[in-house]
């Protein structure tokens, strides 16, 4: 039997929101890859912790799992929690898949008529998430400026159905922005070292009022 989200975070199921957040941040400090570079086990543990936190925050814990208490207004619930994907899949299989196909068609209709926010609301009410769900969510989130979710979901769609050319095309389109940006960076002579050079070495010109008073939030130094 898999551990419950509360067990993963090491808190009691009756823990308050603050206690859960505190426990989560403590564990993040211990296992986050940024503080444990190259440690595969820590990275795996961190994604487990993230999924558990996300499940608790969105009310997808064992007792309420599968009940439709994810509020449709919160696009939080659109955030995938991969570790619980299988469980979710098993449950949703028992529900009518036909309804879901009909709903995904309405989602597509919303997207096509440029009502992506409505599409996201509808997507978030669905429990069964297949490749097409992720594909449509990727498009809808991209069009509403949710770049983080858009990229994750477009990638998830391709991961679930690598052979689908349309899913691949949309992912490429979304990823093209990043490539374009790197090109622009090269055109502007961007290198991490040059950009990070603080002129504190020779900061003769840095005499602005803010710097003199030491109030400038961060002295990246006057040009």
């Amino acid at each position: 039997m898999a551990k419950s989200p509360y067990e993963i975070l090491g808190v009691s199921p009756n823990a308050t929101k603050d206690e859960v957040t505190k426990a989560y941040r403590k564990l993040a400090k211990k296992y986050h890859p940024d503080l444990n570079p190259g440690d595969e086990a820590a990275a795996r543990r961190m994604s487990e912790i993230n999924a558990a936190y996300d499940d608790i925050k969105n009310g997808r814990t064992s007792s309420s799992y599968g009940s439709s208490d994810t509020s449709p207004g919160s696009s939080r619930s659109s955030y995938p929690s991969y570790s619980s994907g299988w469980e979710q899949y098993q449950r949703s299989r028992q529900e009518s898949a036909a309804d879901d196909y009909a709903t995904l068609d309405s989602v597509q209709a919303y997207i096509e008529s440029d009502q992506c926010e409505a599409a996201i609301l509808l997507l978030n009410t669905m429990r069964h998430r297949n490749a097409r769900w992720y594909y449509l969510s990727g498009i809808a989130n991209y069009n509403t400026g949710n770049s983080v979710t858009a990229l994750r979901h477009a990638r998830e769609a391709v991961r679930l159905e690598p052979g689908n050319a349309e899913f691949r095309r949309v992912l490429n389109e979304i990823e093209a922005s990043g490539e374009m940006y790197r090109t622009y960076q090269n055109e502007n002579g961007y290198t991490p070292i040059a950009v990070g050079l603080c002129c504190s070495l020779a900061c003769s010109s840095c005499m602005c009022g803010a710097c003199i008073a030491g109030l400038s939030p961060i002295c990246v130094c006057c040009p």
Binding site: K22, R25, K26, A28, K29, H32, P33, D34, L35, A43, S47, N50, Y53, D54, Y79, G145, S147, V148, L151, R152, I174, E175, A176, S177, G178, E179, M180, Y181, R182, Y184
Partner: peptide
Amino acid sequence: LIRERYNPLVFLPQGEIMDVLELTGGEVMR
């Protein structure tokens, strides 16, 4: 992370952070 404060990117897998930033930068430039 060290100070146990809120940071939205804690929830993101490490490898995705730069992709997201560059993607967003690209949209800004466009």
